[in-house]
Computed example of a mutant assay.
Amino acid sequence: MSRLKKLVVVVVVVLGLAVGGVAWAYPSVAAAACPGCYGLRSAGDGVYVEEGVPPASVLATVAAARRLVGDFYGGRVTSPRVLACGTDACYTGIGGGREKGVAVLNRAVMLSPGGLDPVIASHEMAHVELHARVSGEVPQWFDEGLAVVVSGDPRYLKPAGAGDRCLVEPPGPLPVTLTEWLKAASADRQTYAKAACQVSRWLSGHGGRDGLLRLINDLNTGTPFTTATR
């Protein structure tokens, strides 16, 4: 075997090991890149479903979720892939955990059997939309609270038009980092309600969508979050 052929073989083997390593260590990333590799079939419009899951139902859910995000922002700049599982085995297989849904690298949204509804789907899409629009740092409580507001999740927020939409008052500072958030939210699910309360009140006092878009612009020009949200 010539040196060139040996080099080609080595490169192919290394690439194969690398891809296999990613699939083993980060199945959600691999599934987002290749849904078919995990048994998900295309339902069209960037949506992939597990065998046995009605495509029309998931497509309707995704369309409703996209409308929620688009209506809130006045349009969308993102359209993440959606991976929808009808069984726990499927969701675990693509890297899911105990959550109902999750955003993957701001490129895809994974939905568990309990997350096949517009509220959960739009919550995760809201994360993707915000991250695509913002280049500056946003504290985790604001990211999560905004996603609750966008989705209108009735578990954590009163309906729009109810005046003050808060269900739970934030007693003090909320988690800033993802690690802090995961720890707090696992101990108290109402952490989402507290964040949603704080964000909804901020939006009410800063012009709603227009205020949020100004905040995003300020963050993108280098203004610190604490200064931009005053």
Score class of each variant (00 low, 15 high):
residue 1 M to E: 09
residue 1 M to N: 07
residue 7 L to Y: 10
residue 8 V to L: 15
residue 11 V to I: 15
residue 11 V to Q: 09
residue 13 V to I: 12
residue 13 V to K: 03
residue 13 V to D: 02
residue 16 G to S: 05
residue 16 G to I: 12
residue 17 L to S: 07
residue 19 V to L: 15
residue 19 V to P: 00
residue 20 G to R: 04
residue 20 G to S: 05
residue 22 V to H: 10
residue 23 A to G: 03
residue 24 W to A: 15
residue 25 A to N: 12
residue 25 A to R: 15
residue 26 Y to W: 15
residue 26 Y to F: 15
residue 27 P to I: 05
residue 30 A to Y: 10
residue 31 A to G: 03
residue 33 A to K: 12
residue 33 A to M: 11
residue 35 P to C: 03
residue 37 C to P: 03
residue 37 C to M: 02
residue 40 L to K: 04
residue 41 R to G: 13
residue 43 A to E: 08
residue 46 G to V: 05
residue 46 G to D: 05
residue 48 Y to L: 04
residue 50 E to R: 02
residue 51 E to P: 00
residue 54 P to G: 04
residue 55 P to D: 07
residue 56 A to G: 10
residue 58 V to K: 01
residue 59 L to N: 05
residue 64 A to N: 05
residue 65 A to K: 02
residue 67 R to E: 14
residue 70 G to C: 08
residue 76 R to P: 04
residue 77 V to R: 11
residue 79 S to H: 07
residue 79 S to N: 13
residue 80 P to E: 04
residue 83 L to I: 12
residue 84 A to W: 03
residue 86 G to Q: 08
residue 88 D to R: 15
residue 90 C to L: 11
residue 95 G to H: 02
residue 96 G to D: 03
residue 96 G to R: 00
residue 99 E to G: 06
residue 100 K to C: 09
residue 103 A to G: 11
residue 105 L to C: 07
residue 106 N to G: 13
residue 106 N to I: 05
residue 110 M to D: 03
residue 111 L to Y: 02
residue 111 L to S: 02
residue 112 S to C: 09
residue 112 S to M: 07
residue 113 P to I: 08
residue 114 G to I: 01
residue 114 G to L: 09
residue 115 G to M: 05
residue 116 L to F: 07
residue 117 D to I: 00
residue 118 P to F: 10
residue 120 I to M: 11
residue 123 H to R: 11
residue 124 E to M: 04
residue 125 M to Y: 00
residue 126 A to N: 04
residue 126 A to W: 01
residue 128 V to P: 00
residue 133 R to A: 01
residue 133 R to P: 01
residue 134 V to H: 07
residue 135 S to R: 15
residue 136 G to D: 08
residue 138 V to P: 00
residue 140 Q to F: 13
residue 142 F to L: 09
residue 143 D to G: 00
residue 143 D to Y: 00
residue 144 E to C: 05
residue 146 L to N: 00
residue 149 V to T: 01
residue 151 S to D: 10
residue 155 R to Q: 14
residue 158 K to T: 02
residue 158 K to D: 10
residue 159 P to A: 12
residue 159 P to V: 08
residue 162 A to H: 12
residue 164 D to T: 06
residue 164 D to G: 08
residue 167 L to G: 02
residue 168 V to E: 11
residue 168 V to G: 06
residue 168 V to Y: 00
residue 170 P to S: 11
residue 170 P to R: 08
residue 171 P to R: 15
residue 171 P to Y: 05
residue 174 L to H: 01
residue 175 P to V: 08
residue 176 V to I: 15
residue 176 V to A: 13
residue 176 V to K: 13
residue 177 T to E: 10
residue 178 L to V: 14
residue 178 L to H: 14
residue 180 E to T: 06
residue 182 L to V: 13
residue 183 K to N: 12
residue 184 A to Y: 08
residue 184 A to Q: 09
residue 187 A to Q: 12
residue 187 A to G: 06
residue 188 D to S: 07
residue 188 D to E: 12
residue 189 R to L: 15
residue 191 T to V: 15
residue 191 T to A: 12
residue 201 R to H: 06
residue 201 R to L: 02
residue 201 R to K: 07
residue 201 R to V: 01
residue 206 H to T: 12
residue 208 G to P: 03
residue 209 R to F: 09
residue 211 G to Y: 09
residue 212 L to A: 01
residue 215 L to H: 10
residue 216 I to W: 07
residue 216 I to F: 06
residue 219 L to E: 04
residue 219 L to I: 02
residue 222 G to I: 08
residue 222 G to V: 10
residue 226 T to F: 11
residue 229 T to V: 10
